[in-house]
Nucleic acid binder design. Sequence first.
DNA 1: ACCCAGGCGGGCG
DNA 2: CGCCCGCATGGG
Length: 296
Amino acid sequence: MDGLTTESRNQVLRTSIFNMRHTIESAQPLTFYGDYDQGSNRLRYATANNLIIVTFYGTTSKGRLLISARDVLKARADVSRRFRLDDDIKSIYDEIRTDRIIASAISKYRGMRVTLNDPWETTLCFIISQFNNIKRIRLITRNILERFGITIYDNNGMPIAKALPTSRVLAEAAVKDLMGCGAGFRAKYIKEAADYCTNNLDLYAIGGLDYDNLKGELMKIKGVGDKVADCIALMGYGKLEAFPIDVWIKRTLERHYFKNRKKSIKELHRFAEKRWGRYAGFAQQYLYHYGRNLGR
DNA sequence: ACCCAGGCGGGCG
DNA sequence: CGCCCGCATGGG
């Protein structure tokens, strides 16, 4: 089925309070390079050595994830980890539902999860995201996937999917070829970050750092500033207290919490930390999409 | 044609 | 520190 061999097996994961569509459409790294079919509620994405197909069926309050893959046991663990199905999302909602604004955001996007992605892939995706729009972020990411991605083969040796390239691959890429993927002025950031993360910083060895120190390490990467570092901390390392502040969340906070007065990034960080604390990242995801989609 | 996008680095006061 | 500027590119 779908490029997998007859040796493929299925696994079922139960979950509660989950909305695949909201999660996928919330533009987290997984969605930048995975295929999602809204009709069948099916996501198709590749990891370093596997093609994984996840289909969600059920209701937002309760449902099941059907998983198909070559190595289905690995895939099951991967899906559970990536969608953070162990999060007690009801308790999280209770903790961040501090006012009617975020209450309506939660109500509107109920079941949207904060995903956990590979640290390097998250770094790459959010370097691409700077001063860019979601459509083009996806375009550039897909181009890099096609041009530099690691091909995944089925058991008969047929290519079935591609996974994002490692930092080592992009460290050796030509800036001109990254430009060819549409990366624009970010091409040199991508190459430098790839080189740095291959030769100077092991992204897979710093997950144990606390949030502040982790963010500090990430900001040493060229092309990674305050906002991108928070995105990586949140979606690449699961630091739920990270609160990425972009133009949208800034507008939303100023509008709904500060009577349209301009606030500095620093002030907004303090506000979010004080108000939403250890789950500020969840609050950010909900407010971000709520603010963006007002009027739509 | 013009404007904007999940910002950042660098230079300046 | 805070402020200001340029930056590749495609879609509205």
